[in-house]
Computed example of a mutant assay.
Amino acid sequence: MDFWDLTKLVFRRWYIAVPLLLATAFAAVYTMNTVQPDYKATAYVQLIPPPEASIAKDIKTLRNPWLDLGLGALNTAATYATVDKRFLNQLKTGGMSDNVVITNGYPAPIATIEVIGSSQAIATGTADAVVKHFNDVVKSLQDDYAVQTPGRILTRRLDTGTNLEETGGKVKRALVAVLGAGVLVTAGLTIALDALMSGRFRRRGKRGETEVDESVAEPVITPTGGPGDRTVKIQVPPQASRQQSAVPAVNGGTPGETNGSKGSVRRTAEHAPTDATIVLPSSVYPKRGDRRDSRR
């Protein structure tokens, strides 16, 4: 069944599909009113080289290996260390969001932190916690090499913590799920009920045709011998043999007799067998001499 056949089936069984589609519409409206949207908080952290680096004649005297690698390398290392699974689990355990994404800027060493939370407070609180942890990671990575204060790379948050916006992704996903489920249920129930109703009507039609065929069945009369034989065989269908049927005799004939002049037979079949043999009178089949005369 293709889409066009399904569409025609839905229109044909509209009394089944329309209530289901209305229920789907009510469920979609209820979902829009009950599902709360998500909020996204965005923060920006800039890595700043040490002030002494601008006046130092030899940068190696600052003894900071991250300056040789570049600020971008420290930014990338701090990003990987911040989105560690352990730290995200701590955020989730503390009632904050673990949906955190950090993007490294190029060529400027700026880390863009995006947090999605179920409420404004959760989104902003998680963003502040991630920024603080990012700064601590940058400081810890330099402490591992015993970098002194004159040669230390600094961090600075560029936003004011008010970059908050409402996202409709959660509501859209819920609506898609409700509408998709409603359409599938509507199509499935419509097809199933249509098959059930069509099968029931088909069985009724076949049963009626069988009853009519059995009720109108007639006996079959077949001669068993040659032209001069007066014996015929009557085959009575099972349904007809259980019924009482009679053809009135003509000129006072008795049941089971054949009137040659009128050619009518009367038989009571209330207890008649399925096959019956009847001897017809000689008037039914003319003699050989008579037939020859008639041919002439």
Rank of each mutant, 00 (worst) to 15 (best):
W66Y: 03
L67Q: 01
L67A: 00
L67D: 01
D68W: 11
D68A: 14
D68M: 14
L69M: 10
L69Q: 14
L69H: 13
G70N: 01
G70W: 09
L71Y: 08
L71G: 04
L71Q: 06
L71F: 08
G72Y: 09
G72H: 10
A73K: 10
L74S: 00
L74T: 03
N75A: 14
N75I: 14
N75Q: 11
T76R: 12
A77Q: 02
A78S: 08
A78T: 08
Y80H: 12
Y80P: 03
Y80Q: 07
Y80R: 11
T82V: 07
T82C: 07
T82F: 04
D84W: 06
D84L: 08
D84T: 10
R86W: 11
R86N: 14
R86G: 13
F87N: 06
F87I: 12
L88K: 01
L88F: 09
L88R: 09
N89D: 15
N89C: 09
N89R: 15
N89H: 15
Q90S: 03
Q90D: 04
Q90T: 01
L91A: 02
L91C: 05
L91N: 09
K92I: 13
K92E: 14
T93L: 13
G94Y: 12
G94C: 13
G94K: 12
G95P: 04
M96D: 08
S97Q: 04
N99P: 06
N99V: 10
N99A: 14
I102A: 04
I102N: 00
T103P: 01
G105V: 05
P107Y: 05
P107C: 02
P107M: 06
P107E: 08
P107W: 05
A108R: 15
A108T: 15
A108N: 12
A108P: 13
P109V: 02
P109D: 01
P109Q: 04
I110T: 00
I110W: 08
I110Y: 05
T112E: 11
T112G: 09
T112I: 09
I113D: 03
I113E: 06
E114V: 11
E114L: 10
V115N: 00
V115G: 03
V115H: 03
V115K: 08
I116P: 10
G117L: 01
G117N: 02
G117M: 10
S118I: 15
S118L: 14
S119L: 02
S119E: 00
S119G: 02
S119M: 05
A121H: 13
I122C: 09
I122R: 07
A123V: 01
A123L: 02
T124F: 04
G125S: 10
G125N: 04
A127E: 05
A127S: 04
A127K: 03
A127D: 02
A127Q: 10
A129P: 01
V130D: 07
V130S: 06
V130E: 00
